[in-house]
C-alpha cells in the first residue's frame, strides 16, 4: 500500500534541516503501522511526504501502486493532522461533511454520514455547534470523524489522540482498530505513547532524531485486540521492546532466546 524507498527530506533555509534520511519501509494493504520517536524526528514530515503535501528531496514514494501525487489526486487517503484544522465558519457537522461535499454527495446523504461519524466519536449532540465552542480534545475528535468520512482505504493520522483524556482515548483506540480491521483499512499512525503504539499496531516503527531515520521496527503480533489485551504479559513485553528501541537498545525476545 505504501512503499518508501530511500526517502530523504532536507528543509533548505539559513541552516539546512535534515528532517529525514534513508527511510525504507513497505506497509502492506490492511496493515496498521505506527510511527513513534522523539519530538522533531520527522514523523509529521514523513506523513506529509506520503500524503504528497510536501515533496521528498530524495527517494521515491508509491501509494496504492501509484505515485503519491496520483494517490492524492485520486483522494485515496483520509488524513487527520496534528492540529484539528477545523473551519470556524462551519458547524461541527458541516466540518465533517466537507470531504463529502467536495465529492459531490447530496446534502441528505452527507448529513446522515456526518451524524453517524459524530456518533462514533461521541459528539452527536454537538453537530450544530461551532468548533470554537468545543474543547481541544473534542475538536480533535471532529477532525478524526472528518478523516473517516469518505471511508478511505488509507488513513494517515498524526497524533490524533494526543489531546484526549485516557478513557476517550482507549475507547477511540478500540474503535479505530475495529474500523481498520473490519474495512481492511491501511493505517499510518503517529503517536508519542508507547502503549498506544503497541495496542494499535501490527508494526511499530521506531524513529530517531537528527537526522530522522528508522532506528528499529518492532513486530507486535498480538492478534485480535480485546479488553484484556492491555493487561496481557505479551503486551507489556512489546511495550518494553519499543521503549528499549527508543533508548537505542534492542531486547532479545524470550521466545527467541
Amino acid at each position: 500500500m505504501i512503499e518508501l524507498a530511500g526517502i530523504g527530506k532536507t528543509f533548505r533555509g539559513r541552516t539546512d534541516v535534515v528532517a529525514l534520511t534513508g527511510i525504507d519501509l513497505t506497509v502492506a494493504a490492511g496493515e496498521f503501522v505506527t510511527f513513534i520517536g522523539p519530538s522533531g524526528c520527522g514523523k509529521s514530515t514523513l506523513l506529509r511526504v506520503v500524503a504528497d503535501l510536501t515533496d521528498p528531496t530524495a527517494g521515491t514514494v508509491t501509494v496504492n501502486g501509484k505515485t503519491a501525487r496520483q494517490a492524492r489526486l485520486d483522494q485515496d487517503y483520509g488524513i487527520a493532522f496534528q492540529q484539528s484544522g477545523l473551519m470556524d465558519w462551519r458547524t461541527v457537522a458541516r466540518n465533517v461533511e466537507l470531504p463529502l461535499e467536495l465529492r459531490g454527495w447530496d446534502r441528505r446523504r452527507r448529513r446522515d454520514r456526518a451524524l453517524e461519524l459524530l456518533e462514533l466519536v461521541g459528539l452527536a449532540e454537538f453537530a450544530g455547534s461551532r468548533p470554537a465552542e468545543l474543547s481541544g480534545g473534542m475538536q480533535q475528535r471532529v477532525a478524526i470523524a472528518r478523516a473517516l468520512a469518505t471511508d478511505p482505504k488509507l488513513l494517515l493520522m498524526d497524533e490524533p489522540f494526543g489531546a484526549l483524556d485516557e478513557m476517550t482515548r482507549e475507547r477511540l483506540q478500540a474503535e479505530l482498530t475495529r474500523i481498520a480491521r473490519e474495512s481492511g483499512t491501511t493505517v499510518a499512525f503517529v503517536t508519542h505513547s508507547i502503549p498506544e503504539a503497541v495496542y494499535l499496531s501490527d508494526r511499530v516503527v521506531v524513529m530517531s532524531a537528527r537526522p530522522g531515520r528508522i532506528a528499529a521496527v518492532v513486530d507486535v503480533g498480538l492478534g485480535e485486540r480485546t479488553d484484556d489485551t492491555r493487561e496481557a504479559p505479551e503486551f507489556f513485553a512489546r511495550v518494553t521492546e519499543v521503549r528499549e528501541a527508543l533508548r537505542g537498545r534492542t531486547v532479545v525476545r524470550a521466545e527467541e532466546r
Binding site: 500524503a51 503535501l53 492524492r72 485520486d74 483522494q75 487517503y77 484544522g85 473551519m87
Partner: peptide, 18 residues
C-alpha cells in the same frame, strides 16, 4: 489562509476555485 486548511484542501485534491 491557515496553512493547515491549505493542506487539508490539497489532500482533497481541490482546485484553486474550490
Amino acid at each position: 489562509v491557515e496553512p493547515i486548511h491549505r493542506e487539508l484542501l490539497d489532500s482533497y485534491a481541490a482546485g484553486g476555485w474550490t
